[in-house]
Write a protein that binds this DNA or RNA. Structure first.
Lengths: 239, 239
DNA sequence: CTGCGAGGTTGACGACGTCAAGTTGACAGT
DNA sequence: ACTGTCAACTTGACGTCGTCAACCTCGCAG
């Protein structure tokens, strides 16, 4: 059904040394296809090539195979996502705890606005073996988060290893985003922001409380009553 | 490369009225293929048919198309996952707050032990339109969680709409599971259970604290200092 | 004006999901 | 025992997919 798509315009062959131009056009066509169809199955080498006004195997001059093309698309998305989150965190730099919250909401909002791209990023098949540039980008994203957590630890709002705290925070925001995308029929609040904000606060509060609780190691898992006691200490220390 | 797989054994044709036998064997073969390959791309109609000792179109006598076969596999997984979680929750029924924690850990453990199946469940393409049996199963899973949250609300440990609380809890456990599966190279703790348990506690504590905080509505987002004050109230009320 | 290499095209292969048509064989009815 | 019927399957084909080998083609260096 999509096999009948025709070229948007005629292409003039790139001159030697300017092959990067086609690479750019291919990437653009791939992103456009994703956005239009809202379905990653529409991302076909043939469709991308046709849309670019070029024959299918021409793509192979610029990308090793289909997964390399997808990886390149993902890199673009990673960069955008990283920029959006960092911007949100820095916009509330005066209160690091609130900065984290804004970063989290920005992350989730981005995911919900670009569900197909987000699927590609986070729900693609896990690459076997070597840590390619894509893993590098994901690690960079985690690094941003860790750097945003560190001021909170320094200020005494959070306790524990900043990287582990960042991991749990990332898991929370990813969970919200992925769950809304994958199960839209769940009884979500009318305004998605309500859910995102509540989730971000839950994560922040829980992390703060847990850090306090863990700072005095216990033998067994604490009871609910012990949780309450730890909370009192936390609140008192923050006054 | 996988096209050369041969039948495991010769099949004797089912007698009229016993076609369900083949359906069962097909489902089994599909699950085996997933487990062996650890990759959902190995789940091919041809591979399933060959493994079952039958021609490819024979599958269509029992499943409308490939997605119907996948959906049937998912239903099996949903049932197992639901049973595992419910069992864990009921094992700690005396302290509902701890019951939730155990349910969460059980959920995540299941996902990490069956990553391919979990991907199929939660990361499949979102079905358009009508709420099929698969959405029904997901809703049932959410219902279990909601029922586990309700005693906590009744006991005063948590506050708010049980369903919304359950949604946030599900988002948290899903986020942990999905993130570990999709990004195994992240600096996770050596023992996965450490992460799972910390995440479950974080979510529980955060939800409890947030519920307390939200019970007296505010105009703007609370500051970090206000969070601390709310914590003190929570701890006092739980004594 | 000529060769050559970067930047493409053509045509084909095998694997995939899917369908239309034919085949087989266990049972019911006589 | 013979036959018809219908569920259960097989055969063969179509179109699409990713991928590859071989060929073409143009702009520029010599």
């Amino acid at each position: 059904m999509s096999g009948t798509e025709r070229a948007v315009r005629a292409r003039t062959r790139a001159r030697p040394g300017e092959g990067q131009l086609l690479r750019e056009e291919i990437l653009l066509a791939a992103q456009t296809l994703l956005d239009e169809a809202g379905d990653e199955s529409a991302l076909t080498l043939r469709a991308v090539a046709t849309r670019t006004g070029v024959s299918t195997p021409a793509v192979y001059r610029h990308f090793a195979d289909k997964s390399a093309l997808i990886a390149a698309v993902c890199m673009r998305v990673w960069e955008t996502l990283g920029a959006v989150v960092r911007e949100a965190i820095e916009a509330a730099a005066d209160d690091p705890f609130q900065g984290l919250r804004h970063g989290a909401v920005a992350y989730m909002r981005f995911g919900l606005q670009h569900p197909v791209q987000y699927r590609l990023l986070m729900m693609g098949a896990p690459r076997p073996g070597e840590p390619g540039p894509q893993q590098e980008a994901a690690m960079a994203c985690l690094r941003y988060l860790t750097e945003a957590v560190e001021p909170c630890v320094a200020a005494g709002v959070l306790r524990g290893d900043p990287q582990q705290i960042a991991l749990r925070a990332l898991a929370t925001v990813h969970g919200c985003t992925a769950l809304v995308i994958a199960h839209p029929y769940f009884p979500w609040p009318q305004d998605p922001d309500d859910f995102l904000d509540a989730a971000a606060r839950t994560s922040g509060l829980g992390t703060a409380a847990l850090g306090w609780l863990e700072s005095e190691p216990r033998e067994a898992a604490p009871t609910t009553a012990q949780y309450a006691e730890a909370f009192r200490d936390w609140a008192a220390a923050l006054r």
